[in-house]
Design a protein around this nucleic acid. Structure first.
Length: 435
RNA sequence: GCGGCCAUAGUUUAGCGGCAAAACUGCAGGUUGUGGUCCUGCUGUCAGCGGUUCGACUCCGCUUGGUCGCCCCA
């Protein structure tokens, strides 16, 4: 027997039975993005690695161990030719690619700010876990060209409205913080390093590693012995410069004004290099994986410059679609029913089979959703299939009807049926299916 | 990248060192042209590779995959 081929680790098939969730989610995202005035952008699924190393930063896990390299298949054995080529990688996230596109396409010449949204797959070579896949879908928004703190608040509002629309309103939790501008952060880092220097022996191994690689991340540690030390550490907010402080204050005031509850979390830092000032994460509290954010983002005022553009402020967020859909499933949130076919055509005999296909084409042209049942010949089997599909009405076409040029209309709920002339079928259905 | 648990039909699960099962699903039928319930029948399985053994789905090892925790992250 041949060995079966499995889907690669950390990837999955999204089967028809799951599609209703995706359709529901996508529809609501699209709607909210439209209302907010965002325009969709699609960037390549892979970019030069530099796009991400520059933006996200070396020393982060995403760059150091989670990227998939892309190269020409035949050249796998052809290493010499490969040496000159620039390394390309599957996108681990969207922001960097979008900023690259903003600069490359001269979007600074469009009316500012440029409001963009996206949706699609991102790739990270991680150890698979609940809510964590090597191919996962993200949707998100990027507002480029406006430093006003009200924009920060407005995209958080957009996130809340989108998530509320899909039924998660009741348990959303917003964590927010400001990590300041590069100047603030340099100061902070110094202070923090000075502070933790004295506690290195009391901190866990991970924190000792963080101390060297990215001291700010010590604030993320969940170990209780580290928590105690963190609690009395200098707070990030106190270190902010006046400009950053008032920016953050205004963001919070705007959230207050919008009635969006938040938790000011001085320990929230986020791992990507490009963030500045506002950072936030949204959780769903009834989630089994409560420590997984379903949506996260922040400001990245320095990134456009990093890609060769003029200094341009920007802010955005990304949501994890698989994580949201897992919640929709586990919370048994009601998904509106899918549009179903109006009528199901059933045939008896070869001649009627051909005729019924032509009839369904005619009905489709007349604006009905008509479907044929294929792959089954007996009347009983076809009716069973129609029933399983949830068909409300059927049209039965047999030998008799082919000759008489009629068709039997059957209401599946009541079981009643009547004979209709094929010529008058369109009018008949218009009346019958009116409500 | 590290650690724990796990792998039997499409799905959910029984089971035993010596015959591999159930339910649901799928397919067909229950006379001549009528679905949902019901009845009958059929299809289909021990993740892969090694080892121990007279004999392995069962015990052991490796690989692959899943799951949970860590790291990190949407």
């Amino acid at each position: 027997m041949k060995k079966n081929i499995q889907s690669p680790r950390g990837t999955r098939d999204i089967l028809p039975e799951e599609q209703k969730y995706w359709r529901y989610l996508t529809k609501n995202i699209q709607k909210n993005m439209d209302i907010f005035g965002c325009q969709r952008i699609e960037t390549p699924i892979y970019e030069y690695a530099e796009t991400y190393t520059r933006a996200i930063g070396k020393g982060t896990d995403i760059i150091d161990k989670e990227m998939f390299e892309v190269r020409r298949f035949s050249s796998i054995t052809d290493t010499i030719a490969e040496e000159d080529a620039k390394t390309m990688v599957l996108r681990p996230e969207y922001t960097a690619g979008i900023v690259r596109a903003y600069v490359q396409n001269g979007m600074m010449n469009l009316p500012q700010p440029v409001k963009l949204w996206y949706s699609g797959p991102a790739f990270r070579y991680e150890r698979p876990q609940a809510g964590r896949y090597r191919i996962h879908n993200q949707f998100g928004v990027e507002i480029i060209g406006d430093s006003d703190p009200i924009v920060d608040a407005s995209i958080i509002l957009l996130a809340f409205q989108t998530l509320s629309d899909i039924g998660l309103r009741d348990a959303l939790k917003l964590e927010i913080n400001s990590i300041g501008c590069p100047n603030c952060r340099a100061k902070m880092k110094k202070k923090i390093v000075e502070y933790f220097q004295g506690f290195l022996e009391d901190l866990c191994n991970d924190c000792n590693r963080r101390f060297v690689e990215n001291p700010l991340r010590i604030f993320d540690c969940k170990e209780s012995k580290c928590q105690k030390i963190i609690d009395s550490a200098p707070q990030l907010i106190d270190t902010l410069c006046d400009a950053c402080k008032s920016h953050f204050k205004e963001v919070l005031e705007n959230l207050d004004g919008l009635g969006i509850p938040y938790n000011l979390n001085p320990r929230l830092v986020r791992g990507l290099d490009y963030y500045s000032r506002t950072v936030f994460e949204i959780y769903y509290e009834k989630n089994q994986n409560e420590n997984l954010a379903i949506l996260a983002g922040g400001r990245y005022d320095g990134l456009i410059e990093l890609f060769g553009g003029t200094p341009t402020p920007a802010v955005g967020w990304a949501g994890g679609m698989e994580r949201i859909i897992n919640i929709l499933k586990s919370q048994e949130i009601e998904i509106p029913a899918e549009a179903m076919a109006d009528v199901c055509l059933i045939h008896v005999g070869d001649k009627a089979k051909k005729l019924s296909l032509m009839l369904s084409a005619k009905l489709t042209n007349a604006g009905f959703k008509a479907t044929n049942i294929l792959g089954k010949e007996s009347l009983k089997a076809q009716l069973r299939a129609a029933n399983k599909m949830g068909a409300k009405t059927c049209l039965i076409l047999g030998q008799r009807e082919s000759i008489d040029k009629t068709v039997i209309f059957k209401d599946m709920d009541s079981g009643t049926q009547e004979t209709v002339a094929q010529e008058k079928l369109v009018e008949f259905l218009q009346k019958r299916l009116a409500k």
